[in-house]
Amino acid sequence: MTTRPLTTIGFDADDTLWQNEQYYRLTEAHFTGLLADFAEGPKISERLLEAEKRNLRHYGFGIKGFTLSMVETAIEITEGKVPASVIAKILDTGRDLLNHPVETMPHVRDTLEALAGKYLLVMITKGDLFDQERKLAQSGLGDFFDAVEIVSDKTAVTYRRIFAKVGDGPERAMMVGNSLKSDIVPAIAAGSYGVFVPHELTWVLEHVDEPKEAPRFRKIDHLGELRDLIDRLG
């Protein structure tokens, strides 16, 4: 009996299954507007990114950490003089992000419908537990997945653990996502296929070079091309 080369497919969530980064960009633009009397927009964005980098180890990935980083940046930019009304508006923008409607990406539902039942499907995402659970529920995609893993970070160890638990190990698994740093490079390091689906907006901290020389690296323009790619694997 021939062993199937692929039995398990992992999907990133934010900006792979549904839109995400564009809402952060809009929120950041609003945030810089709130502090326009104290500094220019690019300087505020630079300080915000620095705060996000510092705070990842404290707050992890997600909206709550982003909101706290905005508050911290506002205090720093204004040298402690930020009005309470501005802090309140920053908190409001964070709550707006947490309640934003979910907009699925093109080809997502058709692709999941075609693959469900033929492969073990697992959603693997970083971020706040409650927020990611909310988005999955609102997306209406939950029934397609055999497992959902919301993790603090994505490393080769993460993928080995998940694909061993959910499927037949990383060698017979594939990870699909828009982040080279989080979805593709560590999945390939774990022994899986890594399918890169670029998004026009990707957080700067997720940027790394494409692993073009890796035998298990693949790149598609959109999720509608995933089924043909899988068929070509045999």
Rank of each mutant, 00 (worst) to 15 (best):
82 V>L: 11
80 G>T: 06
69 S>N: 05
83 P>S: 09
99 N>V: 07
76 E>Q: 08
108 V>P: 07
114 A>Y: 07
82 V>E: 04
46 E>C: 10
94 G>H: 05
107 H>N: 09
36 A>E: 04
106 P>D: 14
65 G>I: 00
66 F>P: 13
47 R>I: 02
112 L>N: 08
68 L>P: 01
62 G>P: 06
116 A>V: 07
46 E>P: 00
101 P>T: 06
45 S>F: 08
96 D>Q: 07
111 T>W: 01
81 K>Q: 14
38 F>H: 06
113 E>W: 04
86 V>R: 09
71 V>N: 00
92 D>F: 10
90 I>R: 05
73 T>Y: 08
45 S>L: 14
37 D>I: 00
64 K>R: 15
92 D>N: 10
99 N>G: 14
57 R>Y: 00
86 V>K: 09
79 E>T: 07
43 K>H: 11
90 I>L: 03
92 D>E: 15
45 S>K: 11
61 F>M: 02
112 L>Q: 09
113 E>F: 04
50 E>N: 15
55 N>H: 14
112 L>I: 14
78 T>E: 03
42 P>M: 08
50 E>L: 14
53 K>L: 05
82 V>R: 09
64 K>I: 15
57 R>F: 02
37 D>Y: 00
91 L>R: 15
116 A>S: 14
74 A>C: 13
75 I>G: 00
98 L>M: 13
100 H>E: 07
84 A>M: 10
103 E>Y: 10
85 S>A: 15
95 R>W: 11
37 D>S: 04
69 S>H: 07
53 K>E: 03
70 M>V: 08
104 T>E: 03
84 A>K: 08
115 L>V: 01
75 I>E: 08
87 I>Q: 09
88 A>V: 05
54 R>W: 03
46 E>F: 05
55 N>C: 08
38 F>T: 00
89 K>G: 00
96 D>E: 15
88 A>R: 15
88 A>C: 07
78 T>M: 09
69 S>I: 02
38 F>E: 02
39 A>P: 04
65 G>Y: 00
79 E>W: 02
40 E>L: 13
100 H>S: 01
83 P>Y: 12
72 E>Q: 13
74 A>P: 13
79 E>V: 04
106 P>E: 15
105 M>T: 02
79 E>F: 04
57 R>L: 05
39 A>Y: 06
81 K>S: 13
111 T>K: 02
104 T>P: 11
52 E>V: 12
77 I>W: 02
43 K>G: 06
89 K>T: 11
